[in-house]
């Protein structure tokens, strides 16, 4: 299928908004699943979008750009992966394998955007020195331009000019590689899980990891059902911690005024 101008417009606007939302209001538009769903909706194939987005989302489950670390941008990857999966008719797995290099390349553009904003910071410092407080505050808003352009421009260019390239790839990709990439797409979600296992205090809570695995692997409970069991246990643990509080509060009162313990 060929892509219409209004579809290009919507996808480009979405990319800009999602990045803004991710840094400010946080309504999930920057999540790959949402981006894939949106692209699927715009192009009339929601299912493909959901699979592309869902697979990519699993790669970056708990990752955040804490302290300004740049992370693979699978929002953009998911938008473009879904578009190419649908326009080329090659299916969701193909979209995922295209999206991964896109998401990794986007790291560079993310760095560039954050770097450009340093210029606005300097301008603001100069303006404050001159007593122009409102003008200095506007510099913050100007920061939106490099940020959103870093997402909108690649999406626009890739959607407009990318399909010829994608066609080239499709026509020249050997079968062994195509199928190998499908297998790779299946095992990639393990990365997102592994990152979380490294980040969260797993050794202290290994019981729950085993329990979750048991529920899904042996009893075939869907993830949402396992989450409910997890929720019940979490509430139990919280209640216990609150019950223990009186004893702790008494101890804390002795050295009151102390600052928060860093761990």
């Amino acid at each position: 299928m060929t892509i219409q101008w209004w579809q290009i417009l919507l996808l480009t606007l979405y990319a800009g908004f999602a990045f803004y939302d991710g840094n400010n209001t946080t309504f999930g538009t920057v999540k790959p699943t949402m981006a894939g769903f949106f692209a699927g909706l715009v192009l009339g194939d929601v299912k493909t979008g959901l699979i592309v987005g869902g697979t990519l989302n699993l790669l970056v489950l708990g990752i955040g750009n804490f302290g300004g670390a740049s992370i693979p941008d699978y929002m953009t990857g998911s938008l473009l992966g879904t578009v190419f999966a649908i326009t080329s008719g090659q299916g969701a797995e193909f979209g995922v394998t295209l999206a991964i290099p896109i998401g990794l390349l986007m790291i560079q553009l993310d760095i560039l955007a954050r770097f450009s904003n340093t210029f606005f910071q300097h301008r603001a410092e100069k303006l404050v020195e001159e007593g122009k407080f409102d003008a200095a505050a506007k510099m913050n808003l100007l920061g939106l331009i490099p940020q959103s352009l870093s997402r909108m421009l690649p999406v626009f260019l890739a959607v407009v000019f990318g399909s010829a390239f994608v066609e080239l790839v499709v026509n020249n990709l050997p079968m062994w590689l195509m199928n190998g990439l499908k297998t790779a797409g299946g095992i990639l979600p393990s990365l997102g899980i592994a990152i979380l296992l490294r980040y969260l205090p797993v050794s202290k809570n290994i019981t729950y990891l085993i329990l979750g695995f048991f529920l899904a692997a042996y009893l075939k409970v869907p993830v949402l059902g396992a989450a409910l069991v997890g929720l019940a246990l979490a509430v139990l643990s919280y209640q216990r911690a609150v019950d223990e509080q009186p004893a702790q509060a008494a101890a804390a009162a002795v050295n009151a005024g102390g600052d928060m313990g860093d761990e």
Partner: peptide, 20 residues
Amino acid sequence: QAANILGITVIGALIPSVVS
């Protein structure tokens, strides 16, 4: 701490559900 429990249970369930 409570939220960690929920999170880790979900991760346990994810392994057989989404990695193919």
